[in-house]
Design a protein around this nucleic acid. Structure first.
Lengths: 205, 205
DNA sequence: GCGTGTGAAACAATTCACAGCG
DNA sequence: CGCTGTGAATTGTTTCACACGC
């Protein structure tokens, strides 16, 4: 199947499947049915079968899916079997938390550098990194082949910094700043906004 | 319109509209058309008009929407015009970042308490809070009328703690732990998973 | 028998396009 | 004339239900 005809909602569910397969493997499961996996992930079994069918036939009729095999296939599809170089812009509390978040490295996302525009923060160590000045942004992206940027800065600066990241070669941005980034179509953007999540929930309360 | 017939995707977009209206107001805009707001938010103008129509008629034909009026209506709908009491479980790097994140208070989400199961962390100050032991969870929820819980703990503990939160009266959970929580239907859950967001992006790279 | 993979059917969301009103 | 609000049309997503193969 070609990239362009897999719906984006499907791509967003694939990581959930991968995560559950990982958990199942850790618990010693060798085989899993779509029904069992569905229960684990919180979706319907038909949805899992349909989603996976976009990429091939991974199961065995009457049996289910081999956990290790399906996991390796999902890792290949999501490209989590190769190393990615990531940088963070913003050395505040969020930047700290992200750098200390071990799950990134566990999933092959290596935090290569952290930047901040505040001269008082430049030079400070955070985890295994040292805060660099914004002037070194482009060089670092190109020298270390950074493909992904994380924006952990206030909204005011985010569009400008995002433009710079893209200009220097970054192709995906995880945006923690509360605004809609306008970027070229071929740049992937994911947006995390805890306040928006809260507001959606309080609607129902 | 009744709650139950407004699609969930619409509810998830409402906070984006509110945020942009806030920005527009800060920039001095008095009136905004669906086209202009759409540009700001990154959706189509028809979608904005359709979404808003679920809740009433807020615009003026030939003119657009009064920024302040629409904003106040969205705040009412999302219930961001009332104070909410929030607690955090997990006093790690993420817990620190969340406590220091001023946007919560700005939007009427007051962090009332932080808990951790690690005795070494109990008693430590974080921002304006002091880390409490898990044994005080239920009492605090009930005494301070906490409606929302944030899980900033490892996946292993998350289901157990979520069950406890719900048992003690919490009605919405913002879940940072990488697993699917199984909870009663009337409990709202939002899930934030940076790794899943990354994995969806690297699919396309 | 069991559970996948998949067309067909049902359902949901988005876009279109325009009547209607200020 | 400009822009909202909204049915109708389109497009997209999920569920159903069953043929097929282990």
């Amino acid at each position: 199947m070609r990239t362009s005809d897999v719906p984006e909602v499907v791509i967003q569910r694939m990581p959930l499947y991968l995560r559950s397969l990982n958990d199942l493997a850790a618990r010693g499961a060798k085989v899993v049915s779509s029904t069992a996996l569905a229960h684990e992930v919180g979706v319907s079994s038909a949805q899992i079968r349909k989603d996976l069918s976009h990429f091939g036939e991974f199961g065995k009729q009457g049996l289910g899916y081999e956990v290790d095999y399906l996991r390796s296939q999902l890792e290949r599809i999501l490209q989590t079997d190769t190393q990615w170089h990531v940088l963070i812009v913003g050395a505040g509390a969020l930047g700290h938390a992200l750098i200390n978040y071990r799950a990134f490295e566990h999933w092959n996302y290596y935090l290569s550098a952290v930047f901040d525009s505040d001269p008082a923060k430049v030079g400070q160590p955070i985890g295994h990194l040292t805060v660099q000045p914004m002037s070194e942004l482009c060089n670092t992206i190109q020298e270390r082949h950074v493909e992904i940027g994380i924006l952990a800065i206030p909204a005011e600066a985010a569009q400008t910094v995002a433009d710079e990241l893209v200009h220097c070669g970054v192709r995906a941005i995880l945006n923690y700043a509360p605004l809609h980034l306008v970027l070229p179509e071929d740049i992937r953007v994911s947006h995390i906004d805890p306040v928006a999540s809260m507001q959606s929930m309080t609607y129902y309360l």
